[in-house]
Design a protein around this nucleic acid. Sequence first.
DNA 1: CCGGTTTACTGAACCGGTTTACCGACCGAA
DNA 2: TTCGGTCGGTAAACCGGTTCAGTAAACCGG
Lengths: 338, 338
Amino acid sequence: MANLQDVAQRAKVSKTTVSRYLNGSLELPKRTAEAIDTAIRELDYVPNAHARRLSLGRSETIALMVPDISTPFFSTFVASVEAEADRRNLSLSLHATLNRREREISYLDHIRQGRADGLIFITNHAGDAALADKINTAGPCVVVDEDVPAARVPKLFCDNEAGGYAAGRHLAEIGHRHFLFIGGVDEMISGARRHAGFLRGVHEVAGEAARVERACGPYTFEAGRSAARAFVARGDTRPTAIFATSDELLIGLYEVLRDSGLSVPRDVSIVGFDDVGPLHLFAPAVTAVRQPVRELGKRALELLLDHKPEEDGTLPQEELLPVTLIERDSVAPPIRSA
Amino acid sequence: MANLQDVAQRAKVSKTTVSRYLNGSLELPKRTAEAIDTAIRELDYVPNAHARRLSLGRSETIALMVPDISTPFFSTFVASVEAEADRRNLSLSLHATLNRREREISYLDHIRQGRADGLIFITNHAGDAALADKINTAGPCVVVDEDVPAARVPKLFCDNEAGGYAAGRHLAEIGHRHFLFIGGVDEMISGARRHAGFLRGVHEVAGEAARVERACGPYTFEAGRSAARAFVARGDTRPTAIFATSDELLIGLYEVLRDSGLSVPRDVSIVGFDDVGPLHLFAPAVTAVRQPVRELGKRALELLLDHKPEEDGTLPQEELLPVTLIERDSVAPPIRSA
DNA sequence: CCGGTTTACTGAACCGGTTTACCGACCGAA
DNA sequence: TTCGGTCGGTAAACCGGTTCAGTAAACCGG
């Protein structure tokens, strides 16, 4: 393959000239410019990205770390980051961590190796100090969706508290007084904030009469199924409304409920969270708090690229994107008084 | 940041020694090895990936081009490729083409720039000669899921014909004689083969009595909706069974049917294709031909890495992965005789 | 004590760009 | 005639690894 030198030789100029001409740091008279253009065409010259990157010290690539790519939430997120990256002529290097710490840490080293100029980081487990430390020293990074508390980098979340609040109010206003909140452990802000918001919404409407139970767990199908099985097994002491705080939890929940003979929303009302999958086609269509996933992706990249490292000693900002409650058919007034 | 030279100096050896030691091309006595290890630790040395790549002439990265990342089918595919790439210590560079030729072509140039050592290419429109030419000259590449006819590279598809056949037989065996096939234009092998298989399956069971109509179009929600609207508008001359040949088509179809008052499977039986989304939770649960998406991703990378460029002049192989018909609740015998 | 082998390393070229610092020719003005 | 400035470039260092082709010293058998 032809390189700069070959082009220069053929155009009877120096490497420097060709390089500067191509980067626009040198105006050339028409004759010379044409000679170079011709040489490039004839040799089918394509610049070598590695040489360029080594020389420039950057990779024109940003890395994206997510727990799993195949879930609708993350894949939509990835798609929106990719679109924004492409708009800026950046490559996107994608890594699935499967929520495992050692993978997260090893990928963080990739950044230091120069494989990426910046990182958008999503984890789904409560971060620890070692992880935060890696993040703080890895280079440009933004943390999205779930907090890593000790990380001193820009952060971007959806408004989890407001989402929980909307779900809580909605269910309480329609008459429910006994609730099951599924998902999230308190170390994770999405769980803690959705829960706090839910409590606030419920109590604001229903006062102290309301009872909110909680089934903690990760945002997985299996956690949804297992919470649902426990729910079904309780018989008449069951809450009348469930807030399933992720699409996966909701799907697991739906699977078990559908097999259990319980009917939604007659026997139990349900509100979901995320609303990225085709929840409107489920039986019945699911009322859910919708996360602005595409905006999340776009904004994450903006934050990453526009953020200037702490000018003073202040902490980088934490930004919240608004959520929306989408009403469908999975919520109705309670029949039983539980 | 420390580089190889710094490490060498500190360990009182040469760059060469450190480099070869790290790459395992040199055995060292314990004392020297320890000196180097210590120097690396003390300087917090991390090798520079760009320098390494330039020197080695490869990028330890493979590129993946898909039309869209956010659909369940592609995101699952991406996830499986990523997993396999990670297992082999390769980075994955992700690109969404949005099915646009100029994007496909421009990304293909990335390969020649050395940004990736190989490419897994998926397109969703009938490829043309210019595209095939780019593919043939871009470097290591495999074409997956949909054909680019003139490309002389390994190809990997699911067994579309067998999938169509299974769907056709299944619907015919249960009593249907009048069908609507939705999706795919004939220039695309997935469409052509699914259609051919469907016809074969139907006619094998129902003989010449069977009528198969076809609504061509891309694999999109909107095409599904529009085919469904046309279907609903026909009133009593409607076919009694529909084969919707992608998850997106199926979802569009379901949306319109659900609003139209037609009931599945009483008024119309439906078989889908892909079966990646949570089709088992739809109302009613969808009978569908399942593609082995994860195997597709894993195998694609294997083909890419293990394929040696045409040893003789023969065309690289085309490989087919088997599909499965998953029976659920969207198929029943026809009521009306249409 | 000599020649050959092994051990333990090393110098310098090379990958292919970018960039700094500088140079020679020509032109217009003083 | 000489000085300064613009035009049109260029030589060479640099980015940070890998690797070919050796070499110096120790060792060892005869």
